[in-house]
Structure formats: structure tokens, C-alpha cells
Amino acid sequence: MDLVRDGDTRAFEVIFDRHGNVAFSLAYRMCGRRALAEDIVQEAFTSLWRSGARYDRTRGSVRSWVLSAVHNRAIDAFRRDSIREGKNVPDDGLTERLEGPTRTAEEVERRDEARRVREALGALPGDQRKVIELAYFGGFSHSEIAELLGLPAGTVKGRMRLGLAKLKVALTDPVSL
């Protein structure tokens, strides 16, 4: 990051190579359109390039920094264009799923983490998982979710809290790993 801060484009290229796939996957999951996902990721990375000097490692990893930027850009796109198609993602030509044989220890670790997160999310009661997914991947506010699901806003907030609390236990409890 120090090199990026100094304007080293090659160092930034390394960041894209390390995090570009998960960034694109998140954008695609959220918006459901390949072209829009590409726009979102491009906006996010160029924004990160220009704000590299403001990266604060005490506030999270580079991956979190990248994914937060992608998430924020996708939410901006939702608000701008009223696009919310992430719930059922159409596969418009995306055939390069990352399911090939693993090659590096880093990839093994990432896939293991992804599996644990998927399992923890999948283990949540459906009503709690739904409000978390609508909020994070769908970009809906809790009041919008309440309206969508015909629930009191307090119930939606309660389900968010319960769901995240269970995720925390599942992802930090060594027994569940």
C-alpha cells in the first residue's frame, strides 16, 4: 500500500489481481448485470487508486477496503438507477466460475473461508438470513425490507441483530470451523 500511496501503478495492479475476482463477484451478486458489475468495479478501483493515501490499515484489511468500495458503489448505482436485481442473478455469459483446482495456499485459505461463511449464512434461520441478504446484497433499508416483507420495522431490526449475532458465534467458535 505504501507503493500505491506513492503512485506506483504496478503495485495497484497487484491489488487488482488479488482482489479483482471477489470484487467483481460481489458487484455481480448485487446488481445481476455483467456490464453494470464491470462499471461498478471499475469505478471502485479507480476511486481506491485516487484515495490510496487514505487507506488506514488499522481499520481493516486491503480486501475489506476494496469490498467496501465496491459495495458502496453498487448502493450508489441502486439509488441512481433503481436497479435491484441481485436476488436472482442471471448468468449472462459468465462461465468462468472459479471452481478449478486450487493452486496456492492462499487460494486454499480463501476457499476455506468462503465455505465457512457460506455455511454459517446457510445455517441461519431463513427469516434472519433473508433480512441480512436484502440489506447487504440488495441495498434495502430496514424500513424498505419491513415494507417488502410486511413486517414491523422493529422485527426486521431484531432479525438483523439475531442473525449477525449467530454469524459471529459461528465464525468465531473454533468448534464450528
Partner: peptide
């Protein structure tokens, strides 16, 4: 916790053109 949620989505290869476009802009 929220920062790890993206790991739960199906992982795709970023299109090659996207990498080129990002780095051209950078």
C-alpha cells in the same frame, strides 16, 4: 462480520477487459 459476507457469493473470474480498463484508467 459484514466484511466477510462477500465471501459467501459465487466467485467469478473478473473479465479480462475489466482489468485492462481499470489499469488504463489508473
Amino acid at each position: 462480520l459484514v466484511h466477510v459476507l462477500p465471501m459467501s457469493v459465487p466467485q467469478y473470474q473478473a473479465p479480462r477487459g475489466l482489468r485492462r480498463a481499470v489499469m488504463a484508467e489508473v
